[in-house]
Design a binder for these strands. Sequence first.
DNA 1: TTGTAGGCGTTATCAC
DNA 2: GTGATAACGCCTACAA
Lengths: 338, 338
Amino acid sequence: MTSLRPDRQPTIYDVAEHARVSKSLVSLVLQGSPKVSETRRLAVLESIETLGYRRSSAAAALAGNRTRTVGVVVEDYRNVWFTDLLDGLQESLNEAGYRIAVSDLQQNSRLDKNPLDGFLSMRAEGIVVATDPTADMMNVHDVPVVMVGTHTRRIPGSDVAANNDRAGGRLATRHLLDLGHRHIGHITTTGGAAIDREAGYDDAMTAARLPAQTAATDVPTEDAAYHATRAYLAAHPDTTALFASNDTAALGVLAAARDAGLRVPADLSVIGYDNSSLAASHLLQLTTVDARSIDVGRAAGLSLVDRLHDAERPPGVALVEPRLVLRKTTASLHVRRG
Amino acid sequence: MTSLRPDRQPTIYDVAEHARVSKSLVSLVLQGSPKVSETRRLAVLESIETLGYRRSSAAAALAGNRTRTVGVVVEDYRNVWFTDLLDGLQESLNEAGYRIAVSDLQQNSRLDKNPLDGFLSMRAEGIVVATDPTADMMNVHDVPVVMVGTHTRRIPGSDVAANNDRAGGRLATRHLLDLGHRHIGHITTTGGAAIDREAGYDDAMTAARLPAQTAATDVPTEDAAYHATRAYLAAHPDTTALFASNDTAALGVLAAARDAGLRVPADLSVIGYDNSSLAASHLLQLTTVDARSIDVGRAAGLSLVDRLHDAERPPGVALVEPRLVLRKTTASLHVRRG
DNA sequence: TTGTAGGCGTTATCAC
DNA sequence: GTGATAACGCCTACAA
């Protein structure tokens, strides 16, 4: 109707004109300010509606000097645990009024030097790093960073939220020990979490004065775990229990056991890690360790919000303790074997 | 050194001053313009480095009136096929110089009315809708939209890229028919894709003059598929083959078969859909249908780029044909049963 | 090749 | 409560 420009997106000017108020008033309405009369507010709201106006977040960020956005850098969005992590982050951060932008390491790689750069340039108010930081990520200033998970290096000044994977490794191994097993192997894959889980396995085996025997794969696939397990079983025929460093690897272990003629859990106990939906399936009923990654996400988000409010607080570390999830793939050595 | 303001992020002004050039020159360097002398360019680059300058994407978007960003709206980032879809989108869109922003339906829900609104306000140059659009998404103007997958309604003027799920349903069913099966059941779940796959199943069964028997679940979980299958098998004991509308459901079918004392594929052939990593696992070796979602993503991205260059082109539909992936869970009726 | 000036659509700071 | 007006940091003619 009143619009004179054919195509351009409407601005607050257009809205102001249509509602017969000033641009400032429109801005106040947009921000939900209480000091606007009901009459005017309604008029503005209606104009917004009929004009199809949307505030330009670029202009808002520029003028307001706030984006209310936190960036999340992730290794690979395919990762199972990332999904839980994101849920926890979403919950805590949205609660505090922040929106989330996700970027994986590959993503937009030909447009930004690295994901951090992208977030920095969009003036994210905080950053969650859920990956092993590369060298060029190490010098981030002026923006709070929380690192998620255990990594080889830590960005200076960052808070940390992580699963206690080492404790989880101990938990899994002790469970097998408690069932009477003595020949317990570990099938591990790549990545920081796997290293800690293996350390936990070593802890528990050493404490029990038993030899720790680990078979490592160089890629984190079910197929690699399958072949590693077949080889391991052939080399250690007296094995009665296997701890896989994640559920996907456990899937490979299960297949390898079957193909080696071993019944689970009668001949071989198997425990995984992650408590993925796969583990809960009727077909597998896999005993596993719940890393409680959603709680890690919550902790990370809370920690970030905290620091956003108090930049001086010394960096903290939040460790989330894992839980054992008992299902059907582990059994007592004596009962089943006689 | 020359910086007078203690904390604020440096701007092109700071860079210009430090490099002893004008702000415009800095801007040109930032955009990689060829009409800048090598000396100056280097000077600017170095100043940028030492000052730790990052261009404000908000200011750039505001002034340049371009964001080079396309938004992707997805139902739930947990979805398996979304992962492939995103790969295809990433590839085609990054190639063309666009970055991708992802938002799922839940995400930031307390900050924006809906994800589309967020993208509109950030002035995304294009939008990919990979979910069933809600009513308030139907009136999007002035920004190209491509819808991914088959949905109940279509945003006016949008292009479409989709898997040919109906053809896939036929493909799976025909495979079972070709193996000699006649009592073929279908376990289906919720969602648009499942509806098409079921239609394909119906097509094939009807063409073979056989009764189509479908068991539907109301939630898309392995557990629901498990129980549906147990009930189906009890009601139809002469069943020799089952087509599950996705691999997760197939997992439930497999468990149900085992618990009913049926061997796969000797007593029961099972085919899934999606060709997920689960299907490829050594444990399952599940025969399935590859929907080629990565190609759908590519098609969607290409279609968007096309339209970005030519807004007048009439809306098009890109259908990606599925492929059969033969593994070990289906077998000929006669050979195995004798 | 380089510099100048105006504007992009908001928010914020004032007066009224 | 409401309305001017000055930033915000960058891009883009245009001029030199």
